[in-house]
Protein backbone atom coordinates (compact mmCIF):
# COMPACT_ATOMS: atom_id res chain seq x y z
CA UNK A 1 0.00 0.00 0.00
CA UNK A 2 1.07 3.61 -0.61
CA UNK A 3 0.49 6.54 1.72
CA UNK A 4 1.30 10.22 1.85
CA UNK A 5 1.97 11.22 5.45
CA UNK A 6 1.87 14.76 6.76
CA UNK A 7 3.41 14.50 10.22
CA UNK A 8 3.75 17.29 12.78
CA UNK A 9 7.42 17.95 13.59
CA UNK A 10 8.32 20.13 16.53
CA UNK A 11 11.80 20.31 18.07
CA UNK A 12 10.70 21.07 21.63
CA UNK A 13 7.93 22.71 23.67
CA UNK A 14 8.95 26.27 22.91
CA UNK A 15 9.80 25.99 19.21
CA UNK A 16 7.28 26.43 16.42
CA UNK A 17 6.31 23.21 14.70
CA UNK A 18 5.18 22.44 11.17
CA UNK A 19 4.01 19.55 9.00
CA UNK A 20 6.56 17.48 7.09
CA UNK A 21 5.43 15.32 4.19
CA UNK A 22 6.70 11.76 3.75
CA UNK A 23 5.85 9.33 0.93
CA UNK A 24 5.53 5.70 2.05
CA UNK A 25 5.67 2.85 -0.49
CA UNK A 26 5.25 -0.90 0.09
CA UNK A 27 3.36 -0.58 3.36
CA UNK A 28 1.97 -3.94 4.48
CA UNK A 29 -1.75 -3.85 5.27
CA UNK A 30 -0.99 -5.92 8.39
CA UNK A 31 1.14 -3.16 9.89
CA UNK A 32 -0.29 -1.02 12.62
CA UNK A 33 0.04 2.73 12.15
CA UNK A 34 2.82 2.76 14.74
CA UNK A 35 4.70 0.01 12.89
CA UNK A 36 4.51 2.07 9.72
CA UNK A 37 6.08 5.00 11.60
CA UNK A 38 8.74 2.56 12.91
CA UNK A 39 9.63 1.75 9.29
CA UNK A 40 9.65 5.45 8.40
CA UNK A 41 11.92 6.15 11.39
CA UNK A 42 14.38 3.46 10.24
CA UNK A 43 14.51 5.20 6.87
CA UNK A 44 15.02 8.60 8.49
CA UNK A 45 17.83 7.25 10.70
CA UNK A 46 19.59 5.65 7.72
CA UNK A 47 19.37 9.01 5.94
CA UNK A 48 20.95 10.63 8.98
CA UNK A 49 17.76 12.54 9.86
CA UNK A 50 16.02 12.94 13.21
CA UNK A 51 13.40 10.16 13.71
CA UNK A 52 9.81 11.08 14.59
CA UNK A 53 9.23 11.03 18.35
CA UNK A 54 5.96 9.39 19.42
CA UNK A 55 4.63 7.79 22.61
CA UNK A 56 3.98 4.04 22.68
CA UNK A 57 4.33 1.21 25.13
CA UNK A 58 2.28 -2.01 25.23
CA UNK A 59 1.10 -1.98 21.59
CA UNK A 60 -1.79 -4.15 22.74
CA UNK A 61 -4.34 -1.38 23.11
CA UNK A 62 -4.38 -1.41 26.91
CA UNK A 63 -1.78 1.04 28.21
CA UNK A 64 -3.00 4.30 26.70
CA UNK A 65 0.49 5.55 25.86
CA UNK A 66 0.09 6.01 22.11
CA UNK A 67 -1.30 9.43 21.44
CA UNK A 68 -1.76 10.92 18.03
CA UNK A 69 -4.54 12.45 16.03
CA UNK A 70 -5.01 10.94 12.59
CA UNK A 71 -7.07 12.95 10.10
CA UNK A 72 -8.67 14.94 12.91
CA UNK A 73 -9.56 11.93 15.08
CA UNK A 74 -7.54 10.90 18.16
CA UNK A 75 -6.51 7.24 17.68
CA UNK A 76 -7.90 7.42 14.13
CA UNK A 77 -11.31 6.86 12.67
CA UNK A 78 -11.89 3.31 13.96
CA UNK A 79 -14.22 3.10 16.93
CA UNK A 80 -12.97 1.73 20.25
CA UNK A 81 -9.35 1.39 19.13
CA UNK A 82 -6.03 2.87 20.18
CA UNK A 83 -3.52 3.98 17.53
CA UNK A 84 -1.38 0.88 18.08
CA UNK A 85 -4.33 -1.32 17.13
CA UNK A 86 -5.17 0.74 14.07
CA UNK A 87 -4.01 -1.31 11.11
CA UNK A 88 -3.19 0.07 7.70
CA UNK A 89 -5.84 -2.15 6.08
CA UNK A 90 -8.39 0.24 7.61
CA UNK A 91 -7.22 2.91 5.14
CA UNK A 92 -7.51 3.03 1.37
CA UNK A 93 -4.42 2.60 -0.78
CA UNK A 94 -3.02 6.01 -1.66
CA UNK A 95 -4.67 7.77 1.29
CA UNK A 96 -3.27 11.01 2.61
CA UNK A 97 -2.88 10.99 6.40
CA UNK A 98 -2.49 14.06 8.58
CA UNK A 99 -0.86 12.98 11.84
CA UNK A 100 -0.87 15.55 14.65
CA UNK A 101 -0.17 15.45 18.37
CA UNK A 102 -3.08 15.49 20.86
CA UNK A 103 -4.05 19.17 21.02
CA UNK A 104 -5.00 20.92 24.28
CA UNK A 105 -3.56 23.69 26.40
CA UNK A 106 -3.11 21.21 29.26
CA UNK A 107 -1.14 18.86 26.96
CA UNK A 108 1.96 20.83 25.88
CA UNK A 109 3.92 19.24 23.03
CA UNK A 110 7.25 17.87 24.26
CA UNK A 111 8.54 16.82 20.85
CA UNK A 112 6.89 15.94 17.52
CA UNK A 113 3.89 13.76 18.47
CA UNK A 114 4.77 13.41 22.16
CA UNK A 115 2.69 15.49 24.56
CA UNK A 116 2.91 15.93 28.32
CA UNK A 117 -0.21 14.35 29.83
CA UNK A 118 0.85 14.60 33.47
CA UNK A 119 -2.12 16.94 34.09
CA UNK A 120 -4.22 13.75 34.12
CA UNK A 121 -1.87 12.20 36.69
CA UNK A 122 -2.31 15.24 38.93
CA UNK A 123 -6.11 14.80 38.76
CA UNK A 124 -5.64 11.21 39.97
CA UNK A 125 -3.20 12.35 42.68
CA UNK A 126 -5.85 14.80 43.92
CA UNK A 127 -8.15 11.96 44.98
CA UNK A 128 -8.49 9.16 42.42
CA UNK A 129 -7.60 6.42 44.91
CA UNK A 130 -8.93 4.65 48.00
CA UNK A 131 -7.12 4.67 51.33
CA UNK A 132 -6.82 1.20 52.86
CA UNK A 133 -5.27 -0.09 56.05
CA UNK A 134 -2.11 -2.12 55.76
CA UNK A 135 -2.08 -5.73 56.93
CA UNK A 136 -3.79 -8.84 55.65
CA UNK A 137 -6.59 -8.24 53.17
CA UNK A 138 -10.01 -9.24 54.42
CA UNK A 139 -12.05 -11.98 52.80
CA UNK A 140 -13.18 -10.80 49.36
CA UNK A 141 -16.77 -11.86 49.92
CA UNK A 142 -17.19 -9.90 53.13
CA UNK A 143 -18.09 -6.74 51.20
CA UNK A 144 -21.19 -7.36 49.10
CA UNK A 145 -21.24 -5.46 45.77
CA UNK A 146 -24.44 -5.39 43.70
CA UNK A 147 -23.88 -6.85 40.23
CA UNK A 148 -25.19 -3.70 38.49
CA UNK A 149 -22.79 -1.47 40.43
CA UNK A 150 -19.87 -3.79 39.74
CA UNK A 151 -20.67 -3.82 36.00
CA UNK A 152 -21.03 -0.04 35.82
CA UNK A 153 -17.86 0.50 37.86
CA UNK A 154 -16.02 -1.81 35.44
CA UNK A 155 -17.33 0.20 32.48
CA UNK A 156 -15.83 3.33 34.04
CA UNK A 157 -12.65 1.52 35.09
CA UNK A 158 -11.95 0.66 31.44
CA UNK A 159 -10.45 4.16 31.11
CA UNK A 160 -6.76 3.85 30.25
CA UNK A 161 -6.12 7.56 30.75
CA UNK A 162 -4.88 8.10 27.19
CA UNK A 163 -6.35 11.61 26.95
CA UNK A 164 -8.23 11.04 23.67
CA UNK A 165 -11.31 12.63 25.32
CA UNK A 166 -9.36 15.84 25.90
CA UNK A 167 -7.77 15.69 22.45
CA UNK A 168 -11.09 15.18 20.67
CA UNK A 169 -13.07 17.75 22.67
CA UNK A 170 -13.39 21.06 20.81
CA UNK A 171 -13.19 22.64 24.29
CA UNK A 172 -10.22 20.59 25.50
CA UNK A 173 -12.30 19.30 28.42
CA UNK A 174 -11.17 16.40 30.59
CA UNK A 175 -14.67 15.67 31.89
CA UNK A 176 -14.92 12.11 30.52
CA UNK A 177 -11.59 11.12 32.06
CA UNK A 178 -12.37 12.75 35.41
CA UNK A 179 -15.92 11.35 35.43
CA UNK A 180 -14.71 7.80 34.75
CA UNK A 181 -12.09 8.04 37.49
CA UNK A 182 -14.52 9.50 40.04
CA UNK A 183 -17.38 7.15 39.24
CA UNK A 184 -15.40 3.88 39.18
CA UNK A 185 -14.77 4.43 42.89
CA UNK A 186 -18.06 6.14 43.79
CA UNK A 187 -19.96 3.08 42.55
CA UNK A 188 -18.12 0.63 44.81
CA UNK A 189 -18.26 0.22 48.61
CA UNK A 190 -14.50 0.71 48.90
CA UNK A 191 -14.85 4.20 47.43
CA UNK A 192 -17.46 5.42 49.91
CA UNK A 193 -15.36 6.83 52.81
CA UNK A 194 -13.60 9.41 50.61
CA UNK A 195 -16.40 9.76 48.06
CA UNK A 196 -17.37 13.41 48.60
CA UNK A 197 -13.85 14.66 49.24
CA UNK A 198 -12.66 12.85 46.11
CA UNK A 199 -15.29 14.36 43.78
CA UNK A 200 -14.53 17.89 44.91
CA UNK A 201 -10.73 17.52 44.93
CA UNK A 202 -10.50 15.87 41.49
CA UNK A 203 -12.85 18.36 39.80
CA UNK A 204 -11.04 21.31 41.40
CA UNK A 205 -7.73 19.92 40.14
CA UNK A 206 -9.26 19.42 36.66
CA UNK A 207 -10.26 23.09 36.59
CA UNK A 208 -6.82 24.18 37.85
CA UNK A 209 -5.08 22.32 35.02
CA UNK A 210 -6.74 24.54 32.42
CA UNK A 211 -9.08 22.03 30.82
CA UNK A 212 -12.24 23.38 29.19
CA UNK A 213 -15.88 22.76 30.07
CA UNK A 214 -18.31 20.21 28.65
CA UNK A 215 -20.67 21.48 25.95
CA UNK A 216 -22.20 18.06 25.34
CA UNK A 217 -20.59 17.57 21.94
CA UNK A 218 -20.03 13.87 22.83
CA UNK A 219 -16.84 13.85 20.74
CA UNK A 220 -15.07 12.29 23.75
CA UNK A 221 -17.38 9.26 23.77
CA UNK A 222 -17.04 8.83 20.00
CA UNK A 223 -13.25 8.91 20.16
CA UNK A 224 -12.70 7.00 23.42
CA UNK A 225 -10.74 3.82 22.62
CA UNK A 226 -12.57 2.16 25.52
CA UNK A 227 -16.05 3.39 24.53
CA UNK A 228 -16.69 5.07 27.88
CA UNK A 229 -20.16 6.58 27.99
CA UNK A 230 -20.78 10.30 28.45
CA UNK A 231 -23.43 9.30 30.99
CA UNK A 232 -20.58 9.14 33.51
CA UNK A 233 -20.20 12.91 33.04
CA UNK A 234 -23.89 13.27 33.92
CA UNK A 235 -23.39 11.22 37.04
CA UNK A 236 -20.26 13.18 37.94
CA UNK A 237 -22.20 16.47 37.79
CA UNK A 238 -24.68 15.15 40.35
CA UNK A 239 -21.87 13.60 42.39
CA UNK A 240 -20.15 17.00 42.52
CA UNK A 241 -23.35 18.88 43.35
CA UNK A 242 -24.20 16.56 46.23
CA UNK A 243 -20.60 16.65 47.53
CA UNK A 244 -20.39 20.45 47.28
CA UNK A 245 -23.72 20.99 49.04
CA UNK A 246 -22.85 18.46 51.77
CA UNK A 247 -19.55 20.25 52.35
CA UNK A 248 -21.29 23.60 52.79
CA UNK A 249 -23.63 22.24 55.49
Amino acid sequence: MKFTLHIWRQKDTTSKGSFETYKMEDVSEHMSLLEMIDVLNEQLISEGKEPIAFDHDCREGICGACSMTINGRPHGNMKGTTTCQLHMRMFKDGDELWIEPFRARAFPVIKDLVVDRSALDRIIAAGGYVTVNTGAAQDANSIPVPKESADLAMDAAQCIGCGACVASCPNGAAMLFTAAKIMQLALLPQGQPERKKRAIAMIEQMDKEGFGACRNYYECEANCPKNISVRFISRMNIEFLSAATAKSM
Binding site: N77, R105, S168, P170, N171, A213, N216, E219
Partner: peptide, 28 residues
Protein backbone atom coordinates in the same frame (compact mmCIF):
# COMPACT_ATOMS: atom_id res chain seq x y z
CA UNK B 1 -17.22 29.25 29.74
CA UNK B 2 -16.55 30.11 26.10
CA UNK B 3 -13.45 32.07 27.09
CA UNK B 4 -12.24 29.10 29.21
CA UNK B 5 -12.98 26.71 26.35
CA UNK B 6 -11.16 28.81 23.78
CA UNK B 7 -8.07 29.10 25.94
CA UNK B 8 -8.17 25.33 26.68
CA UNK B 9 -7.75 24.59 22.96
CA UNK B 10 -5.31 27.20 21.66
CA UNK B 11 -4.10 25.14 18.65
CA UNK B 12 -6.76 23.68 16.37
CA UNK B 13 -6.29 20.57 14.27
CA UNK B 14 -5.21 20.85 10.66
CA UNK B 15 -7.92 18.38 9.70
CA UNK B 16 -11.28 18.97 11.37
CA UNK B 17 -13.28 15.77 11.49
CA UNK B 18 -16.14 15.73 13.99
CA UNK B 19 -17.64 12.39 14.94
CA UNK B 20 -20.74 13.53 16.81
CA UNK B 21 -20.63 17.31 17.30
CA UNK B 22 -23.27 18.64 14.93
CA UNK B 23 -23.63 22.20 13.71
CA UNK B 24 -26.28 22.99 16.36
CA UNK B 25 -23.96 22.15 19.25
CA UNK B 26 -21.00 23.95 17.69
CA UNK B 27 -22.99 27.14 17.05
CA UNK B 28 -24.58 27.56 20.50
Amino acid sequence: LSSINNSAKPVKYQVVNYAKAKINSRSM
